[in-house]
Amino acid sequence: MIPQPLRIDIAIENVLSRVGITVRGAVEYTGGVMVMFFRSMRASVRRPFEWRSVVEQIEIIGLQSMPIVVLTAAFTGMVMALQYAHGMARFGAQMYTGKLVALTLTRELGPVLTSLMVGGRVGAGIAAEIGSMAVTEQIDAVRALGADPVKKLVVPRVLAAMFIMPFLSVCTDVIGLFGGMAVSFLEYDIPMGFFAKSAIEITKFSDFFSGVSKTLFFGIIIAVVGCYQGFRTRGGTEGVGRATTEAVVIISVGILIADYILTKLFLSF
């Protein structure tokens, strides 16, 4: 066979059409997620309120995530203290360690790392649970029995995530600071009182608020994407596995993108 010469125009067309398909898929997906969110908000104000389910979900999403949150927070604070104390020593500025740990934790790493960890755990769980329901016709059954699956399944998870994520983020901030304080003292002899004082001094309410309020949005992303992935699950157990994996990837990427947009937005105020 004679090798075909590379047609540059065809190659470009192929690349562009793939980009087009990907972009279109992403836009459609984002649209679908937003529609599900707005439908859940509308359903959440319709009676009767599903208090019991919301409380159940707060336990699953929030309390059961506590161990992972505590571990993430403590080690993040500890590692940051190590890095900052080590790095700042080069400038003879080791006393700023507390301030840097506090700012980084409250503004950025506390909320984002917590959300990524909880997102992986909870998002996968939601997608797997609702995905299994979808492939065993349980979601059809909810509708057939006269109920709205968005109200029954999505609303409790979204409300619980919106409520609990900021709370978890505050826990991260506090635990992380303690971790940083302990390491600074043990490794670099920075007095704990000094660390705490400088950390509190530097952190303004707006720093704390911008970090914590971001997690409200991350909570929405975690719950809605998890549910959306679950609802679109097709193709038996294999489909459930795929939906779960995709949920974790999309939630993580979604959190990182949303973090940039929200940080930019908060900085402009």
């Binding site: 299994s132 065993t136 016709e137 349980q138 059809d140 909810v142 509708r143 006269g146």
Partner: peptide, 18 residues
């Protein structure tokens, strides 16, 4: 909803809520 009140369905895998 009123239609679904009057017509019940037994799903293939029963679709009980686990």
């Amino acid at each position: 909803i009123p239609v679904r009140r009057r017509i019940a369905m037994l799903f293939q895998g029963a679709a009980l809520f686990d």
